[in-house]
Design a protein around this nucleic acid. Structure first.
Lengths: 336, 336
DNA sequence: TTGAAAGCGATACCAG
DNA sequence: CTGGTATCGCTTTCAA
């Protein structure tokens, strides 16, 4: 009695042909079958604890109700939040996510994608890629792809956040506090999410009439806590005396904070700091970090919605979700 | 030219029967085919960019090279790290993970599990469950299950960490620093991961000859930052004056820290704090948190190894991985 | 309304 | 060594 019940099992128990059983069990075809037969089949099914074999179903229908989720590293809180958002909307539609981490490594990426494609995923949500062309091909071959979080040159539907607006709010917040010497510490990498940020910084500063002597922009290839610390330390060594710094992400902000601490300067008294992303722990830092909240889970959800829309035959637009500037305790008026 | 190449396509291109093509392409049967035929088939395959349809393959072989990963919430850093560890070993074996979040909600859990089972996953790695019996059934029905992180009453193979040892090291660390009044602030929930901890605390304290007047144990149903804060605040109100506190997890430790700050007491001068888990950000707190590092990724990897072993027909033991006590700056001798 | 039968794309057994 | 064929569990068209 170990084996799983199959469609034929319920059919024989109900005394009908298995084709009929199939029709009786699925919503969209049940109306082709007499009510009493439907009843008989259904009760047979529950008696046998029948659940359809999705593999067989997939082979027949070419749909697996499975989507691939491609992130750089699921252990990274941004990717994790995004994945959660994806799951939340997939669940409602009967889909589940095949999640892979690429480590931002092209070889890994290719092989993971291959693994997903050969498993016939119905679509892909990609939150990490150095090779968008890879996905254009996939999309062209019929597997829909939605890009999330990072904007890349492509015509694939993409869900991003308007981090530029956040930078603008950050700058205006600082200006209204009385700051004039504002530095930017960020990543120069190819991730467009990084580029947007420092470009936005420069643009807004200029727009506010702050000339280049008022701003110091420092970029590094990395984007970790250490990179932020190093960049800020060098800025100080070279005589920079910003009263506030905007960091390209929260980790780099933490790096700046650590340098301050080491030099016996304090935040926000001596220098104000603003981060970006609003990672899970930022409110518990000392001081709690003022930062730009990027709605990663919502980005994931929106990407999943877009993918489902494509699967329904619609043609969703790319969207840009608003960010939220959240002021906590790492910013204050400049002292003196 | 859009459609994917199938086995018959490469067979006709190579001028052989598709059964032969199948044999030629798979390692274990290639020796049944003449070398030149193998060659012909293989080149046809690469020319057509043939990749086997894993769905069809699965239907035939009853193996999907897919495993289900069940976590409470993928956005939770512990679950994320664990999942990463799982992925790392699965990747090497050609498996991918179908990841679902249950929200510690039984209804969700059941439906997610059903989704995985009907997708014919080859096995399950479960890092969250209130209903172990559910999995015993599944295992009995032939789908192997490995439990990770939480110990529950079951005979399923389980991978955990020896957090009790960590608690012991934490206490000894505190004692060697000169502390005598040590409090424990933790969760009372049904998660065995929580129970272990305060039980270990009581046991070790007694073993070290500290009688109950030297220890205050406070438990709450929740296990967040807020719960930790509340518990500690109440302890203080009721006249408790511990010189050190061990928290059941890092979030609760942060809660304790926040109370200290609010009361203008400082850590570690006024009270030392030790956390548990070593979540990603703990080294960047102020002060950096002394804590018990639980190797979540390794737990995930070990669980995946165990699952693969079962799939190979072996019978792996349950294992308990060592934790690492990491001393940072939130502990110091009592100032008295 | 129901039964029969053809496949989906692969594997594997049995002959030749 | 290779070809034919049954089969995995299901959906779906075609007749009856």
């Amino acid at each position: 009695m170990g084996r799983k019940a199959t469609l034929r099992d319920v059919a024989t128990l109900a005394g009908v042909h298995y084709g009929t059983a199939s029709r009786a069990l699925r919503e969209d075809t049940a109306h082709l079958v007499s009510p009493e037969t439907v009843e008989r089949v259904r009760s047979a099914a529950t008696k046998l604890r029948y659940t359809p074999d999705l593999i067989a179903q997939s082979l027949r229908t070419n749909r697996t109700s499975t989507v691939g989720v491609v992130v750089p590293d699921i252990a990274n809180p941004i990717a994790a939040a995004l994945t959660r958002g994806v799951q939340d909307v997939l669940r409602g539609a009967g889909y589940v996510g095949l999640v892979v981490s690429t480590d931002a490594n092209q070889a890994h990426e290719r092989s993971e994608i291959a693994a997903l494609v050969s498993r016939q995923v119905d679509g892909l949500i990609v939150a990490s890629t150095k090779t968008p062309s890879l996905y254009s091909e996939i999309a062209a071959s019929g597997t829909p792809v939605v890009l999330a979080n990072r904007r890349v040159e492509t015509d694939l539907p993409t869900v991003t956040a308007s981090v530029g607006d956040g930078i603008e709010q950050a700058i205006d917040h600082l200006l209204s506090l009385g700051h004039r010497e504002i530095a930017y510490i960020g990543a120069a990498g190819d991730a467009n999410t990084g580029l947007d940020r420092h470009v936005a910084f420069e643009r807004v500063m200029r727009a506010r009439g702050l000339d280049s002597s008022d701003r110091a922009v420092r970029l590094s290839p990395g984007y970790g806590q250490h990179d932020g610390a190093e960049l800020f330390e060098r800025l100080l060594e070279e005589g920079g005396r910003p009263t506030a710094v905007i960091a390209g992400n929260d980790m780099m902000a933490v790096g700046v904070l650590s340098v301050l601490r080491r030099m016996d300067m304090s935040c926000p008294e001596d220098v104000s700091i603003i981060g970006c992303n609003d990672l899970p722990f930022m409110e518990f830092l000392n001081p709690p970090l003022t930062t730009i909240h990027v709605p990663h889970a919502e980005i994931g959800s929106a990407a999943a919605e877009a993918l489902l829309a494509i699967l329904r035959g619609e043609d969703p637009e790319s969207t840009e979700l608003p960010v939220e500037f959240v002021t906590r305790a790492s910013t204050a008026p400049p002292s003196h």
